[in-house]
Design a protein around this nucleic acid. Sequence first.
DNA 1: TTGTAAAACGACATTAGTGTCGATATAATA
DNA 2: TATTATATCGACACTAATGTCGTTTTACAA
Lengths: 206, 206
Amino acid sequence: MSPRVSKEHLKQRRADIMEAARNVFIKHGYEHTTMKHVMEAAGVSRGGLYQYFSNKEDLFEALLEEGLTDEAEATEDSLEKVESYWDLLMQLLFGEDGNPDTEMDPLAPSKLEFFITGRNDERRRAYGEKRYETGLRIYDELIKKGQESGEFNDHYDSELVARSIITFIDGLALDHAILPEEKVKLKEQSALFVDYLKMALGVSSS
Amino acid sequence: MSPRVSKEHLKQRRADIMEAARNVFIKHGYEHTTMKHVMEAAGVSRGGLYQYFSNKEDLFEALLEEGLTDEAEATEDSLEKVESYWDLLMQLLFGEDGNPDTEMDPLAPSKLEFFITGRNDERRRAYGEKRYETGLRIYDELIKKGQESGEFNDHYDSELVARSIITFIDGLALDHAILPEEKVKLKEQSALFVDYLKMALGVSSS
DNA sequence: TTGTAAAACGACATTAGTGTCGATATAATA
DNA sequence: TATTATATCGACACTAATGTCGTTTTACAA
């Protein structure tokens, strides 16, 4: 009547596998990675791997969840005590410094794969929708508050503007997944889109 | 010394297979369709199919080429004799009538899959870049001419605006691939993006 | 008709990946 | 130190897909 190892160790092992898997997914993409790839990268046996994750989808979703939690909650509360909604929006879009020169999440291309190739699977589809909805809410909420405060004008429906933000982000992620760094012009396109948003929200300051 | 069938027949057979394949790709997506699916849909044997296409990639690229030719040349020449570049741009974006209520190409999701999952394959990557470049040139050319004619202002670099158009289209295609029709709000988002463009190009008329 | 080139067929060998399961190794406890 | 629960292992059976190749069929020419 004694578990072989501490819960710490189990958690650690799981984390190690996920870390290795993450790198494999980044390298090969979702569809083309195999459990064998992960086994080798993580230095674990077949049986060992399946002890922690029952299949590739399960494993990838664990990575998805990991990424989601941090971001969402961080913005949720800063929505309460903020002086400029515009600054907050820029932060949300481009990270801490709020300048459009952010690196992309290297796992992003695989995430796209995951949802696109799984678009006919009921489960995956529902999951994708939930994620979209979550992302949408965050932006919608922010914009709505900005409009109510008078910082933004309400010429456009907040949700529609939020949708356009996500469309833009998705489009960039997609092009970035396919094209070489220098061709996407991430920075310039982001700057242009910021101008689009300024127009839509009636923001003039830099 | 006699070929078994006329060239007509061969061409027809090939076309039939492609038609069937198109439907299969639409239904299952690129990654998940198999040659067997196509065989069955086209009512052709394994050997028969491989006589025309040496693998799935080959087959899909044939479909890609098919779609590309029509669109490109159609716009190429209407660029010469046009009274309003803006109208032409709207036509290019939303089809003949130039109104943002267009249906999406049902094969589009599979195309995304094809390029995303193939992003690590040299050949496929190069092919994807060429396509991006081609699309970019069309929009860039149009916008540049519109700027030269004075119809558009040149506050923004024409190529950058062209890129943002493609990003937007890609983003919409992506969301449309994953989300149900009613959630994407294609029409509304398109309308908003048109406003973005009006701003960027300094166009005021409806 | 008949002969023939090649279109169409489908069985086959091969490859690659999956998930399972009994055997083995080992860390905590007694 | 001996015991034991269980983490880890890797061989295995199974499935699914691929591309090939010898055989059969058939449209056309002679």
